[in-house]
Each structure stands twice: as structure tokens, then as C-alpha cells.
């Protein structure tokens, strides 16, 4: 059946495209090897095999949680980007589209400025509240029409409004607090701890289940509103579930490591270029590419000029622009 194979697992049945599954597996293997290399890379100590011993505390308490957080947050952004691009049928959509990123950022900045002594564990919760609140306001303003272009446009407007508020806060902030805020906003994973890895993984699990669970309906929705409805898909319900998942993933990611740009935009394009296929393949490959991008950016920022640390968000911006331009050149017949 045109390259597909059906895999049975107890009562469950999964239809896999053999070539795309192999490509995803290959991508996962590349990711695993890159992760091992990154785990052994020390900024001031050079590379040493992670299993060689003698670097227990650095490896276990600093490098491993940071690496895992990079992988998890990259996957979250990849999934959120792929979902929003599919929902809006716009290849330029990214997780900042609906103002979720700005909403989460603003909420955490308020926490940083007014409650600097608050436990770091509060940040994800506050970020989620900020992100979800922004989407709730956007939905209200759009009068519930979540699948319409009106919703996206209002989201973009809210996003710009919140960006203005963030800029206002930074301008008015005390110069000493601004330093902390700027580093966080630049997208840094230096504060990674096991507690943040666990919470980020939970967000990824919930968002991933929602997205992969609706992937087949998403394939049908890609055929268009009328055809989708005629094939029995509730387009509104599907959009609500997928937007909720994207909001959770984006707000969660911002809460743990600040504003990491470009990943949500580029990862889905890399996924389409390398793997292609429907929603299932797109989501899998986007998550893998997102994880690769954030992990590579964070490792480069951590070791390239050590002990000087460059936030992953800045490395991503520097790498991201050439990659984006390259993509646009490669796909110049489509854009």
C-alpha cells in the first residue's frame, strides 16, 4: 500500500510509512550521537567521554539536566511550530504568533521584577498562566472563532501589544534588574535543574499526546474545512485541542528557558524537507529537528568561548537567519 506498513501493538494498530519512519529513526540516531558529544563537551576542560568518570557533579548536576532541557524544549518548540503552521496553513507561523510567547514572557518578567525571591519552580506555572490568559483574551476578542483568520490576526495584534509592554518594563526597570531580565529573555538554559527538566517533560508529554492523538484528524483537516467536515472531523474541536497543545508547549518552553526564536519556524520546514508526509511524520520530525537545533545552539553557546557564555537564543538567531535564507532559496519555487 504505497510504502505503508501496519504495526500491531496489542489492541492498538499503527500505520507507518516505512521510508519516513526510517528517516525519523536515522534523525533520532543522529540526535543521540550529537547528545553524547555534547554531554562530553566541557567549556574549559575540553571533551572527555561522559562515561570516563571523574566529572560526576558537573556531568550529573549541570550538563545532563541542561542537555535534557535543551532536547525537551527544542522538541516542544518544534511541535508547537508545526501545529501552528498547519492550523494557519502558513509556513511563516511560529510559536510567537498568538502572543503566547510574549504573554508568558511578560508574566515571568513581572515575577522577576516584583518577586525576585520567588522560588524558580513558580516560573513555569506563572508563564503558563500568562500564556493561557493571552490566548483566552484572544479567543474572547475573536468571538470564539478559533479556526478563522480573524483569530490569528487578533493574536498577532495582542502579541505586538505585549511586546510593547515588555519593552516598556525593560526601559523603566532598574538597571540591575534589567541585566537578569535581558539574559533570561535572550533564551538561556544555564539555569537548568532536574526539577525544570521534569516539569518541561510533563508539558511535552501532555502536548505531544494531544497533538499525536489528533494527527490523523489533522491530516483530514489539511484537505480543507468543507472536505474535513464532510469526512466527519469537528474542525472547531480539533482547532481548540491543537491550539491548547501549542499554547501549553510554547508557554512551558518560554517559562523554562526564555524566548528561543526561530526553532518553531525552522524545525517544521526542515522536517518537510527531510521527511515530508502527513501530520504524524511532520510532528515527529519537527520535534527531532527542534531538539537538534536547541541542543546544538546551547552547546555552541556553552563551550565555544567558555567561560564566556552565549545564550542559546542568540546563537539560534545567528544560525537561524542563514538557515532560513537557505531554506527560502532551496524552496524558492514555493514561496
Amino acid at each position: 500500500m504505497s510504502g505503508y506498513r501496519v504495526v500491531h501493538c496489542g489492541p492498538l494498530m499503527l500505520r507507518l510509512h516505512k521510508r519516513r519512519a526510517m528517516l525519523c529513526l536515522f534523525l533520532a540516531l543522529v540526535l543521540l550521537m550529537a547528545a553524547v558529544l555534547a554531554l562530553g563537551a566541557g567549556g574549559t576542560t575540553g571533551w572527555s567521554a561522559p562515561w570516563a568518570g571523574g566529572q560526576g557533579k558537573v556531568l550529573w548536576d549541570l550538563r545532563l539536566p541542561r542537555l535534557l532541557l535543551a532536547l525537551v524544549c527544542g522538541a516542544m518548540l518544534g511541535l508547537a511550530g508545526a501545529t501552528l503552521q498547519s492550523l494557519t496553513r502558513n509556513g511563516l507561523a511560529d510559536p510567537g504568533l498568538l502572543g503566547v510567547r510574549e504573554g508568558a514572557s511578560l508574566a515571568i518578567l513581572v515575577l522577576l521584577f516584583f518577586l525576585p525571591t520567588a522560588a524558580p519552580e513558580l516560573r513555569p506555572l506563572v508563564g503558563l498562566v500568562g500564556g493561557v490568559s493571552v490566548v483566552a483574551v484572544t479567543v474572547l476578542l475573536a468571538r470564539g472563532g478559533i479556526e478563522r483568520m480573524r483569530f490569528i490576526l487578533i493574536g498577532i495584534g495582542v502579541s505586538w501589544f505585549l511586546s510593547g509592554l515588555i519593552a516598556l518594563m525593560l526601559v523603566a526597570a532598574d538597571v540591575t534588574m534589567m541585566q537578569t531580565a535581558m539574559v533570561w529573555l535572550a533564551g538561556s538554559l544555564s539555569g537548568a535543574a532536574w526539577s525544570s527538566v521534569r516539569m518541561a517533560a510533563l508539558c511535552l508529554l501532555i502536548g505531544g499526546v494531544l497533538l499525536f492523538g489528533t494527527a490523523r484528524a489533522g491530516d483530514v483537516a489539511d484537505l480543507g474545512d468543507h472536505l474535513g467536515r464532510s469526512l466527519g472531523v469537528s474542525m472547531t474541536r480539533l482547532a481548540v485541542v491543537r491550539v491548547a497543545a501549542a499554547v501549553l508547549l510554547t508557554a512551558g518552553c518560554v517559562s523554562f528557558c526564555g524566548r528561543l526564536g526561530f526553532v518553531g519556524l525552522i524545525a517544521p520546514h526542515l522536517a518537510r524537507l527531510s521527511v515530508g508526509g502527513g501530520q504524524g511524520a511532520l510532528l515527529s520530525a519537527s520535534a527531532l529537528w527542534g531538539a537538534v537545533l536547541v541542543m546544538v545552539a546551547d552547546t555552541v553557546g556553552r563551550v565555544a568561548f567558555a567561560p564566556i557564555q552565549i545564550p542559546a537564543g542568540i546563537v539560534l538567531a545567528v544560525i537561524g537567519v542563514p538557515v532560513l535564507l537557505g531554506l527560502l532559496w532551496c524552496r524558492r519555487d514555493r514561496f
Binding site: 566541557g42 567549556g43 574549559t44 576542560t45 557533579k57 558537573v58 548536576d61 549541570l62 550538563r63 525576585p116 532598574d174 538597571v175 540591575t176 534588574m177 541585566q179 537578569t180 539574559v183 533570561w184 538561556s188 544555564s190 539555569g191 556553552r302 567558555a306 567561560p307 564566556i308 557564555q309 545564550p311
Partner: peptide
């Protein structure tokens, strides 16, 4: 701007002193 936590760990400190404005 941002300190290298691995470099901090490698120094085996018995006390770390931070300033509120450079807190991370």
C-alpha cells in the same frame, strides 16, 4: 554577562557570593 556554572563547579568553592542584579 552570564557565568559559566561548570567553571564555578571546577573551582570547588566553599562559598559563592552573588549580587542581586546578577542573579541567575
Amino acid at each position: 554577562t552570564e557565568v559559566d556554572l561548570e567553571a564555578v563547579a571546577n573551582e570547588r568553592p566553599d562559598l559563592i557570593i552573588a549580587e542581586k542584579g546578577r542573579l541567575a
